[in-house]
Design a protein around this nucleic acid. Sequence first.
DNA 1: CATTACAGACCGAACAGTCGGTTTAAAATT
DNA 2: AATTTTAAACCGACTGTTCGGTCTGTAATG
Lengths: 202, 202
Amino acid sequence: MNATKEFIIVESSKLFLRKNFKEVTMQEIVQKTGLSKGAFYHHFKSKEELFTEVLNYFFTHVFVHNYEAYSTESFYAFYHDYANAVQNIGKRYLENMKDEENSFFNMNYFTLIFDALRIFPDFRQTVVTGFKAEIEIWKSVIGKARANGEIQSSMTDEEIAMTFISLSDGIAMHMIVRGIRINEVRDIFLNLWDKLYEQIKV
Amino acid sequence: MNATKEFIIVESSKLFLRKNFKEVTMQEIVQKTGLSKGAFYHHFKSKEELFTEVLNYFFTHVFVHNYEAYSTESFYAFYHDYANAVQNIGKRYLENMKDEENSFFNMNYFTLIFDALRIFPDFRQTVVTGFKAEIEIWKSVIGKARANGEIQSSMTDEEIAMTFISLSDGIAMHMIVRGIRINEVRDIFLNLWDKLYEQIKV
DNA sequence: CATTACAGACCGAACAGTCGGTTTAAAATT
DNA sequence: AATTTTAAACCGACTGTTCGGTCTGTAATG
């Protein structure tokens, strides 16, 4: 990809972490990139096209889990690796803000998704596919842990997976609303995960 | 409150369940209400003022729990009452949409809060206060259940409360993204709540 | 008949996007 | 090596439209 185009995506992605699609103006984008409107429209056919690229950037470079790197030795090791990765995602998220005056995030993983769904209804399929893939990975680790005798529960693998994932998402959302520091979120849901784990470990 | 003003709030609230603040235009508001611009600005000094009233309407008439009505006999009865109330909230939410062609909700409890936080930073305090009050109610019911010998857990009352609340919120968010029918959300998280309950009940 | 409620023409600002033209640098030609 | 050609990158004034909001006039109300 063209370097300038990539530069525009990365720079304007910072704007989309503070305001939603409608609130970010072309004027702000050209100001942030230091380019002109003509230059922008040379690389993108519309503001919407930029936004699709920004979303793609977020979901392939920022809000992304590298599951291959997580231990599948035990469920315990797996979800601890996952929690640490969430911490790193938070750090990448904050890096996108360090050149802003008021380092307060008004958009987040969830609002970005809902904003995108409103503008691009087809985006739903992409998100749902991603969710399902994530659940499958958790299920397989959990199933293995159950077979190993690491854990034991009346819940199905899928129920355990959904409980862990949804709990962390719910906690994250509450903490974002409360304005808590991103790095503290991990500790809060990891503590609860450990407590849940205690109840299912053999 | 003036009947026309209330009518404007209720009618335009339906628009704010489909689009965010910036996306909803004055033209749509006057069209939806069948009134004129002059009439609107006779009752409200700005679009923002309307939005504060709409938010107030949502959080006092739609997205609201009537905790006094919930059983505090047992934690089990309490969270079942809560889950049923969530069902009713979902129904009220859907009622606001029945006169629209495409009955698909693009805004929800969470996006509304985040939209509001961006426009009215002071709204955070209101939301956080509400969250804390909710947790306190749960904590007291859980504490009582523990004292009664209904439940037993290595988790603190607050941890149990946060686990239950955040889990249902996380589930709701996932299900909204998936486009699942609102009424099914209750069954999904209530099932998980029951499983968690099984593990802490004496 | 004074006040409230409403209508709708109207306003300037802001919006996304366009367009004619300039700069830059590499490729082609002499 | 010097000159010409070509194309991509970029510029910013400009366009048509829509935005939230105002203003003046009229109808209803009590």
